[in-house]
Design a protein around this nucleic acid. Structure first.
Length: 660
DNA sequence: ATAGGGTTAG
């Protein structure tokens, strides 16, 4: 929606709301309800509704239809239904808006049921109803249902309606049937940008075909260009997407947002924030979706201060009641380690959904607060929020990071029996990680074998990582063999195995694996770590030797290692071979970007300042290797573990405890 | 009323 239009609507809505004593009339009411719907202003909408009741206008069928529509668009489907049910009779518009409402909130199945129900009650669908129902089919990739609807459309002679036909093209394209999409497309008496765009998107599997359709278009607008940019992002051709983006004559908010989100997904949070700044410099107004992308970028960088500024802007723009934005805010604060801020946003929400709770639990997991995660999970259930499969992934990984084996096993069991959630491969993978990290290698391997289908590479990687932590070379070779067969071009398996050989002092085998890796063309991606120090985000790359403070950083690392050894920390595996030169040892000392970042953080911040560290998990595939040195960082404390104990270091003070 | 970008995990 154009900014100016919003302003006018806001003005109208405001005028109406400021004059509660004046009886409303019908013609003035429609634009106000429409304004509330367009702005997603649920509370204002409720207010208008109340006034309508006072004015005795709530029985008018047109008014009721617009109220149902407003509530559905504002995301309160319950209110929409209560208006719907109070109506003496519903017409095609009433049914259509409630169907569209369900499609919008992702309940495609329910939308199709309603479509059947309305016909049973003798109400005939029109072109708008068909558009909504086709949308539902597309969102569920339900091609059979889509074909039935198509039949009905032909029977009613609506196939040449440009809206209906465009939706048909879109539905077939999204369901993966390019042939049927083409058949409808070429039969259309006239085509508009929408039908062309739907065709382009249908060809995104093959970017060459998409280009062919694109080049045939009689005229192109921003949306079509966006589709092409997005097509490249989806095909993993980020560089090409960027080139295309730079070539565009005019970009809109969607183009910028797609670029921002694309960069976040590729682990380029810093670039995403740069794009956001550029976008604003060029005078493009961000919308809620943009903010979701920007908050994701802040979360991925643990950039708390940046995140706070973005939050401020969100409030200024008035997008702080958008459910996606608010959930992203909770997630950002939780990931940045500021659980207090996360709760503050959480408590201000009128109601929290499973995504909000998952964001909180995920934040706990990331920061090693296993016990807290379990406590919050209990509260979540008490509040009547149904946990889903992602909830259990968060819980299990929280248990894994905190070494809570029994609790993890209990959650795993309760998941299907009590909560009726089917165990997915990801849950098994979490369990392999949990058991393996805790040293129950045999149980972890049994878990891999018990998986109902072929294990994910991630599960085997978790097991191999555990073999490295606990120095089991025999199992490591067995697991690595499977990994290298499944993904010979993935460098992580080779790196882990060669680390295990190095730790055992077997230089020959170590070099052998390295040779294999190079033969297969598996490229090691540099591990990267970000740390926020004095409101600035610094990035460290593996084997970085050019940092201006490198001497101090090395000294700090050596001090830490000494401290740990003095406290009885026994490294169970060591990458550094016995016979390497002194200089090479120093090289290994700065091997991990995470170590560099921690040392940098410790020497540049006052005692007591929490360290905010984030590893780029997508790029840094050596996350397993880093767990040996650092188990987790909580505030400023660093936890490491060897075979028997947990060691806890905080500003030069050390405490040890036995575990499992 | 139709087309492009959206929340949580791994």
């Amino acid at each position: 929606m154009e900014k100016r239009e919003v302003d006018q609507e806001e003005e109208l809505a405001a005028t109406c709301l400021c004059a509660p004593a004046i009886a409303l009339n019908l013609s003035a009411t429609f634009p106000v309800i429409k304004a509330c719907a367009g702005l997603g202003a649920l509370e204002d909408g409720r207010h208008v509704h109340k006034q309508l009741i006072q004015s005795g206008l709530e029985s008018d069928v047109f008014v009721c239809n617009s109220l149902v529509d407003m509530y559905a668009k504002c995301g309160s489907i319950e209110d929409a239904w209560s208006v719907f049910n109070k109506m003496p009779s519903q017409d095609v518009v009433t049914w259509t808006v409630i169907i569209l409402g369900h499609v919008k909130c992702g309940q495609g199945q329910k939308a199709l049921e309603l479509f059947r129900q309305m016909q049973q009650e003798g109400v005939q669908p029109d072109s708008v109803t068909f558009v909504g129902v086709l949308n539902a089919c597309a969102s569920m990739v339900a091609i059979e249902e889509g074909r039935c609807v198509h039949q009905q459309i032909i029977q009613r002679g609506l196939e040449s309606n440009v809206f209906v036909a465009s939706s048909l093209v879109d539905m077939y394209a999204k369901c993966g049937s390019i042939e049927e999409a083409q058949r409808v497309f070429y039969k259309m008496p006239s085509r508009n940008v929408v039908s062309w765009t739907a065709m382009i998107l249908g060809h995104c599997g093959s970017i060459e075909d998409a280009w062919r359709v694109f080049n045939k278009m009689p005229s192109r607008n921003v949306v079509t260009w966006n589709a092409m940019v997005l097509g490249h992002v989806k095909c993993g051709q980020g560089q090409k997407a960027l080139e295309l983006f730079r070539q565009m004559q005019q970009e809109d908010v969607v183009t910028w947002t797609a670029m921002i989100l694309g960069h976040v997904k590729c682990g380029e949070g810093q670039k995403a924030l740069e794009l956001f700044r550029q976008m604003q410099q060029e005078g493009v107004q961000p919308d809620p979706v943009t903010f979701v992308g920007v908050l994701n970028a802040c979360a991925s960088l643990i950039a708390l201060e940046e995140g706070r500024c973005v939050h401020q802007q969100i409030v200024e723009y008035g997008w702080d009641s958008d459910v996606f934005v608010v959930n992203s805010l909770v997630d950002m604060y939780a990931k940045c380690g500021s659980i207090e801020d996360a709760w503050r946003v959480f408590n201000r929400m009128p109601s929290q959904d499973v995504v909000t709770w998952n964001a909180i639990l995920g934040g706990c997991a990331m920061h090693g607060h296993g016990k807290e995660a379990l406590k919050h999970f209990e509260r979540m259930c008490e509040e009547g929020v149904q946990p889903d499969d992602i909830t259990f992934i968060c819980l299990l990984s929280a248990c894994s990071h905190a070494g809570l084996v029994d609790e993890g096993l209990r959650c795993f069991a309760l998941m299907s029996t009590v909560y009726g959630i089917s165990t997915k491969l990801e849950h098994y993978t979490c369990m392999v990680d949990l058991l393996g990290r805790a040293g129950h290698l045999q149980e972890a391997e049994n878990m891999v074998k018990a998986m109902p289908c072929k294990p994910q590479v991630a599960a085997l990687m978790a097991l191999l990582g555990a073999c490295r932590i606990h120095g089991n070379m025999e199992m490591a070779e067995r697991v690595a063999k499977q990994i290298l067969e499944m993904e010979p071009e993935n460098a992580t398996g080779y790196v882990l195995l060669s680390n295990i050989y190095a730790a055992a002092g077997n230089r020959h085998l170590c070099e052998n694996v390295e040779r294999q890796r190079k033969e297969k063309g598996a490229k090691k991606e540099p591990g990267r770590t970000w740390i926020e120090v004095n409101n600035e985000v610094h990035m460290f790359v593996v084997e970085d030797r050019d940092h201006p403070q490198m001497i101090e950083i090395h000294a700090e690392l050596q001090r830490l290692s000494g401290l740990m050894r003095d406290a009885g920390y026994v490294p169970c595996t060591e990458f550094v071979l016995d016979d390497v030169e002194e200089e090479e040892k120093l090289f290994h000392l700065c091997h991990h970007s995470e170590k560099l970042a921690i040392a940098f953080g410790l020497i540049n911040t006052a005692p007591g300042t929490p360290l905010r560290i984030r590893k780029n998990l997508r790029i840094c595939k050596d996350c397993h290797t880093s767990t040996k040195f650092i188990s987790k960082i909580v505030g400023r404390a660093i936890m490491v573990r060897d075979a028997n104990r947990f060691h806890h270091f905080e500003d030069g003070v050390c405490s040890c405890m036995d575990y499992w």
